[in-house]
Structures are given as C-alpha cells and as structure tokens.
C-alpha cells in the first residue's frame, strides 16, 4: 500500500535523500517542509498518512510540537533525532524515533511498521526503532 508521506526536515539534502528513499519504497512524498507553519499548512491542504519529523527545524526545536499537532489531526508520526529525551510525552499515533543519519533499511522497516500500526495490523517493530508508546 503506497502511502502519502510528509517530510519535515530543514536540511535540504537530508530531506531530498529521504524523499528518494521513500519513492524507491513505492510511497509518495506529500511535501518537504522545514518549519512548523509550513508543516501544518501542508498537512491541512494535502492528504497525509505519515509524517517523518526532525526535532530541530528552521524555526527551532519545534519538531515535538509539530508531531503532537499532526498526530491530533490523525497523521502517524515518526521522529528522526539522536536525542529522544527532547521529545517528551506523546499521543499514541506517534510511533517512534529513528536516529540520524538512518540507513535505508531502517527507514523502510520503520515506515512499514508505522503504516501497519495505522491499519491496526499486529506486527513487531524493527529492532532499531525506539518506540514511544
């Protein structure tokens, strides 16, 4: 099942790489945004199943808050950061945290796991994904 995925990342090259990896996996990139305002706008305008969110963005360490707001709109969320303690308490639709930089295999496994959770399927998480719930 191809999904529509929003990339929230202010480092252009990293975002581009992630976009290509996701497309290789057969998904659609719903957009690449670098701050909270554009992230929320994009999520309001487009259909988004999953968002991959960096913690430090163009407007500061706003990733966790963006994640919470997107989750409240029914979007599944994966964080990308090396410092999970920055994230704090999260609602259940936020799936987990990948460390940065990530390899393609982990991205593929984490996205598959997030989408499976979204569909209510019972699957076991990839070993390197830090779960938040």
């Amino acid at each position: 099942m191809p999904a529509r995925i929003l990339i929230v990342e202010d480092e252009t090259l990293v975002a581009m790489e992630l976009g290509l990896i996701l497309e290789d996996l057969g998904h659609q990139v719903a957009g690449i945004v670098s701050d909270s305002r554009s992230a929320l706008e994009k999520a309001g305008a487009e259909t988004v199943d999953l968002a991959i969110v960096d913690v430090h963005l163009a407007d500061g360490p706003t990733g966790p808050e963006i994640g919470r707001r997107l989750a409240a709109q029914g979007v599944s969320v994966l964080f990308m950061t090396g410092n999970p303690s920055m994230i704090g308490p999260v609602p259940s639709t936020i799936v987990g945290v990948m460390s940065k930089p990530t390899d393609e295999r982990l991205i593929g496994n984490a996205v598959a796991y997030a989408l499976a959770c979204r569909e209510g399927r019972d699957v076991s998480p990839p070993a390197q994904l830090r779960l938040l719930n």
Binding site: L13, V14, L20, G82, N83, K100
Partner: peptide, 21 residues
Amino acid sequence: SQELSHRIKNIFAVVSALITL
C-alpha cells in the same frame, strides 16, 4: 555542547545524503 553535538550529527546526515544523491 548540545548545539554542537546536534550540528555534528547533522553534518554526518548531510554527508550521508550527499553520497546517496
């Protein structure tokens, strides 16, 4: 120190992305 560490990690991510692209 946190800021520095964050930037260093970012550089790794960017270099890695650069190689892929």
